[in-house]
Design a protein around this nucleic acid. Structure first.
Length: 486
RNA sequence: GCGGGAAUAGCUCAGUGGUAGAGCAUCACCUUGCCAAGGUGAGGGUCGCCGGUUCAAAUCCGGUUUCCCGCUCCA
């Protein structure tokens, strides 16, 4: 039996729409770009992934507790976190191709080109260095936008894709969603942001948790929740959305021990991805080069998955140092130090962050599970999802629509429904029903036939190899339970 | 930027001026004794958008938007 893995994202998009995993938001109005809704199967899959993560991070670690912070936060939080200042990108549009670019990136690329073409020529090398200097000091002459615009004009930097030299002004884009707090509010003074990351909800609760949950450094706080970013280029299905869900854990450690903890968490998080059934050869760690680190980080690495669109980040592990807590200490005026009783010393803990995209993880699970197989000349599409994550666990069928078979099948359904998501189906040929479940990723199917009526046995059919076994009715629950663990 | 192609049902597509179709999918009934293909029927479409020609436009003309392919550009 030969099989093909997923070839393109379109296959996933089509299956998701046809089977009810994921739909575009506001579909009947033409869709809202970069926003997606989860359908009946998708919500189950997503929730199972969420539960698996929550269990692995909180239940299985005695020193990690959870919180669920609100999406609205005090505006000062985002000043302290650096997002008001640092989450702004200077953008410029090519009027001809209508493509939008980050102005500073355009200039950087231009400099790279100057350096390459000017190798060995002192005059050209000096010119490249001069442009670099202008870029580094942008914002000190007029404003940031004006300075960048002047460099682009001066250097006659053309649009990479269209080749045109027909730019708009450089404009500042704030990646945070702004809304108004209060029913009558219209003014910017009452502006409040939708959080661009969930992490700050953890940091502002750090002291509350410390004072109430009897935790000691090192300890972690985990949270799952929505975050919002006005992405400049939002595309590629649920990979980059404007509204998305993060699963984050901030681990508070003693300064000096942060590098060891960072390595451990990177290792642990990789192991988790493998544990939920993702193929090892589709996973890798990609450390961030030092000059690309975010404003709060000392070290950072992506856990990347080989999507149909290439290697892309699913999870980030960061050493955030004491940046966030120190800043909140400064901005709030509240002491956020930790007192270590044993060592008799006081410090602001360092933080190791693990932050995984729930939607990206869902897309990863779907991509990794997708297969097209040749079965005796027929094609079969199957989602080889880990049984613990599968939206539906058991399909239950009477072999044919006869009252005796329906009766026993429905009895089995009622019993199993108490502990598993099950799906009763009596429509169409038996083969068709198996294939329907294959596309939904259902790992087990129970079929009731006439042979089994006398001795109370049924067949259980396995999704991945289509093998069948005859088992007695009272063994079903135990058999399925035995296969349901990570 | 240039050239070409495409846009019609949930999906894949047919339909060269005269009542919008097929296959698949969905639903109902029948059939079906273990791996999607049987029968009968049903629901489902502002024919991308705007304008023009015409008694009449999915179809002809103009414009426009989006997507795909190639070239160019960029690396």
């Amino acid at each position: 039996m030969s099989h093909k893995n997923v070839q393109s994202l379109d296959q996933i998009v089509s299956l998701c729409k046809a089977r009810g995993f994921i739909f575009q938001s506001s579909d009947i109005y033409g869709g809202l770009s970069a926003v997606y809704d989860y359908g009946p199967l998708g919500v189950e899959l997503k929730r199972n992934i969420m539960n698996a993560w929550w269990r692995a991070m909180t239940q299985e670690h005695s020193n990690i507790v959870g919180v669920d912070a609100a999406i609205f936060m005090h505006p000062r939080v985002w000043e302290a976190s650096g997002h008001v200042e640092g989450f702004n990108d200077p953008m410029i549009d090519d009027k001809q191709s209508k493509k939008r670019y980050r102005a500073d990136m355009l200039i950087e690329q231009h400099i790279l080109k100057l350096q390459e073409k000017g190798k060995g020529d002192p005059a050209k090398e000096a010119h490249a260095a001069e442009v670099q200097r202008l870029l580094d000091t942008a914002g000190t002459r007029k404003g940031m936008c004006e300075d960048l615009y002047e460099i682009i004009m001066e250097e006659e930097i053309h649009a990479p894709e269209s080749g045109a030299f027909d730019w708009t002004e450089v404009r500042q884009f704030n990646l945070m969603f702004k809304t108004h707090y209060g029913a009558t509010s219209q003014s910017d003074e009452d502006a409040i942001y939708l959080r661009p990351e969930t992490a700050q909800g953890i940091f502002v609760n750090y002291k509350n948790v410390l004072d109430s949950a009897r935790v000691q450094v090192p300890f972690g706080i985990a949270q799952i929740g929505k975050a919002f970013r006005n992405e400049v280029v939002a595309r590629q299905f649920v990979f980059r959305m404007r509204e998305f869900e993060q699963m984050e854990m901030q681990y508070f450690v003693e300064p000096g021990s942060d590098e060891a903890h960072y390595e451990q968490w990177l290792e642990k998080r990789m192991a988790w991805h493998r544990s939920i059934g993702i193929r090892e050869e589709h996973l890798r760690v990609a450390p961030h080069p030092e000059d690309k680190l975010a404003h709060y980080a000392r070290a950072a690495a992506d856990i990347q998955y080989k999507f149909p669109i290439g290697w892309q980040e699913v999870e980030g592990v960061h050493n955030r140092t004491d940046f966030d807590l120190s800043r909140h200490q400064e901005y709030s005026g509240k002491k956020l130090e930790y007192f270590d009783q044993k060592a008799q010393k006081r410090y602001v803990p360092y933080v190791i962050e693990t932050s995984v995209g729930l939607d990206r993880t869902t897309l990863m699970v779907l991509s990794d599970a997708y297969r097209e197989e040749d079965v005796d000349g027929e094609q079969r599409t199957v989602l080889n999802i880990h049984p613990m994550l599968a939206p539906m666990k058991v399909g239950i069928f009477p072999l044919v629509k006869k009252p005796e078979l329906q009766e026993l099948a429905q009895k089995i359904e009622t019993d199993l429904r108490r502990s598993h998501r099950v799906m009763y189906d009596e429509a169409g040929s038996i083969g068709k029903r198996y294939r329907r479940q294959d596309e939904a990723g259902t790992p087990f199917c129970i079929t009731v036939d006439f042979d089994g009526l006398d001795d109370q046995t049924v067949t259980i059919r396995y999704r991945d190899d289509m093998r069948q076994e005859r088992v007695s009715v009272d063994q079903i629950a135990g058999l399925i339970d035995s296969k349901m663990s990570f």
